[in-house]
């Protein structure tokens, strides 16, 4: 329990520090510090109201206290352009981003774990000779470029998939569940998810391969052979099962990191998600929205880092029992 409490305190500290950095960054902008919250096109009355709401007529230290207080209540202010609460805007696109990330990540880890295990099992085979440079090349390719090539071939070329967005224009859904499970949404999801997957599979694949190589030399794998178990059982139940443990941590860490990396993929495919919202907000100087989107991404990242630690403990019986 002490361990969890410590990790949680650490997470809160990191989040606080990030929020503070962000607060200072937006106020270090040249010119009027209120630029972070105020749009010149606001009417005088709106201006006064918001200045007061956010305490922008107060000294810097008090503004900081108010900023943190607002954060604790989940308040990020109003978007300049849409004039809507930032929190609501973020929450409306969050499911799109989470779904995209999760689908791509699960596909990438399933593929990576399987192929990585196979590569190790067939050490020195053709799969490895061709596979390793290919995997390194996918790690070296910019995600948005992979997306562009896929778009040109599969959307504009053969026309199997739509060129962008999350749903067809004019599509109406009775509920959120109906929306996310509709064939239309899934068809839009394929290319961006596949792009992300290609980028993401390299890490679990290489990790799985090196873990497998290590585990395959372990005594219990040799014993499994001596027991006359079928090769497949030895590979999957014993070697792969043990080699999989570190991948769980990598998965959770990957989820946090991917959310930030989604930015480019969402932009290529005009996917209405958090990353694209951030890009749009930054390029149109919609600072409250940019600040909110950034903090949201950072919060997910830091939370997933915490979960990575906890998940590892739960999955490895040695660690799990050691901690009690």
């Amino acid at each position: 329990m002490v361990f969890y409490a410590k990790r949680l305190a650490h997470m809160v500290f990191v989040l606080w520090a990030i929020a503070t950095i962000l607060f200072l960054m937006f106020r270090l902008l040249p010119g009027d510090p209120t630029i972070a919250y105020l749009d010149p096109s606001f009417t005088g009355e709106q201006r006064q109201m918001i200045l007061h709401d956010f305490g922008l007529d107060q000294p810097l230290w008090w503004q900081y206290v108010l900023f943190l207080g607002n954060l604790l209540h989940g308040q990020f202010g109003l978007s300049f352009r849409q004039r809507l609460p930032v929190t609501d805007m973020i929450l409306s696109v969050l499911p799109n981003t989470l779904l995209l990330t999760l689908v791509a990540l699960i596909a990438a880890y399933a593929f990576g774990a399987l192929v990585g295990a196979l590569m190790a099992w067939k050490r020195g085979g053709a799969l490895e000779t061709i596979g390793i440079p290919l995997v390194l090349a996918t790690r070296a390719a910019p995600e948005f470029w992979i997306g562009m090539v896929l778009l040109a071939v599969f959307a504009f070329g053969v026309g199997w998939f739509p060129a962008g967005g999350a749903t067809s224009p004019g599509a109406v859904f009775t509920s959120n569940l109906a929306r996310y499970s509709s064939a239309d949404f899934l068809r839009h999801l394929v290319l961006p998810a596949f792009t992300l997957m290609i980028y993401l599979q390299g890490l679990p694949l290489l990790l799985m391969r090196s873990n497998m190589l290590e585990v395959m030399g372990e005594e219990f794998v040799i014993m499994a052979r001596m027991k006359g178990l079928p090769e497949r059982t030895i590979m999957l139940r014993h070697a792969a099962r043990n080699a999989l443990l570190p991948l769980v941590t990598a998965f959770a860490l990957g989820f946090g990191a991917t959310l930030g990396g989604d930015v480019v993929v969402e932009t290529v495919f005009s996917w209405p998600g958090l990353g694209r919202m951030l890009v749009d907000a930054v390029s149109s100087s919609d600072y409250p929205l940019a600040q909110g989107a950034f903090l949201m991404i950072a919060a997910v990242l830091v939370t997933m880092n915490l979960l990575a630690d906890i998940a590892y403990g739960l999955l490895d019986p040695r660690v799990a029992h050691g901690r009690r």
Partner: peptide
């Protein structure tokens, strides 16, 4: 014929038992 006719007791059973399975599972296997 392995294990049915000829079986093995390893030197270091520290690593010879798979750490992620309960003994019952390893017996059943």
């Amino acid at each position: 014929l392995l294990w049915r006719d000829i079986s093995f007791v390893p030197q270091s059973s520290m690593n010879s038992l798979d750490p992620v399975y309960r003994m019952r599972t390893q017996m059943r296997e």
